[in-house]
Amino acid sequence: MYRILIVEDEISITDTLKNRLKKYGYECHAIEDFKSVLDVFQEIEPHLVIMDINLPYFDGYYWSRKIRKISTCPIMILSARMSELDQIYGIENGADDFITKPFVMDVVVAKINGQIRRSYGEYAKTAERRLLHVGNTTLNLDTVRLSTPEQEEVLTVKELQLCHMFFEACPNVVTRQQLLSVIWDEEGFVEENTLTVNIKRLRKKLENVQSSLELKTIRGIGYQLMEKDT
């Protein structure tokens, strides 16, 4: 089930979005503490964010920039003001699409479905193999899931890309430079700890599904996916 984080301070709008999107099978979470948007984002790891612009404390552009430093998940800006200049500014601050208030719910759902399909489904369609198996663990490129016979975890876009690289390379070492250049395109735009944070999350998900695999750090070089020592 794909997770959506709603960052909107008008309760009526939040409730409308949550109630409708749940009917389409989305798992919805809403921000309550508007000082902690990034913390909640990192805890929930949503697949898409609906971001209002006018928020308490910091505006939606601020939070979009913060999210974009650690994730490429789609961000849809929700605002009553959507001039061409606003849209340009939104894109420059990490937005992928826009919803103008007042909105038509069917249009919102269509936009969300499109972003989810492009961000997750299209990546799977371009893969030659849809299921990758290493040890007791399966990476499903269609459903964006990491699983074993015991458990499964839904991955974020970055986790999917990382996992795909490690599964394809296993048991060879994948260098940090390879990961950064393929996943983030331009190494210069990535903070030093961004890859480390994503690796930590992927390790946690391997642990959660009781995988027989582990991601070892090869100091000064990169990471290696391999079977745990028995």
Rank of each mutant, 00 (worst) to 15 (best):
I221C: 00
I183N: 06
C170E: 10
D15V: 15
I199D: 12
V40R: 10
E10W: 13
F98W: 03
H47F: 03
K69T: 14
D185F: 07
E45W: 07
L139V: 13
G114L: 09
E152Q: 15
K125G: 02
I13F: 09
T196V: 05
Y223L: 05
I199R: 04
T217F: 03
V134N: 04
C28H: 05
K111D: 08
T100C: 11
S212V: 01
L162C: 05
H29I: 06
D15N: 14
Q210H: 14
T148S: 12
T143F: 05
I4D: 13
S212P: 03
N140G: 03
E214G: 06
R145Q: 15
I75M: 01
M51H: 05
G121H: 14
Q161H: 08
K158W: 04
N54F: 11
T148F: 07
N140C: 13
G60P: 03
V107I: 15
N140E: 09
A80W: 01
W184I: 04
L146R: 01
V190S: 01
T194W: 01
E10V: 15
E128D: 14
C163M: 14
W63E: 07
W63S: 06
C163S: 14
F103G: 07
M165S: 08
L139T: 11
P56M: 05
P74N: 12
V37L: 01
T230R: 02
I4N: 03
S12C: 00
R145W: 03
V109W: 11
S36A: 14
V190Y: 01
M1V: 13
S181A: 06
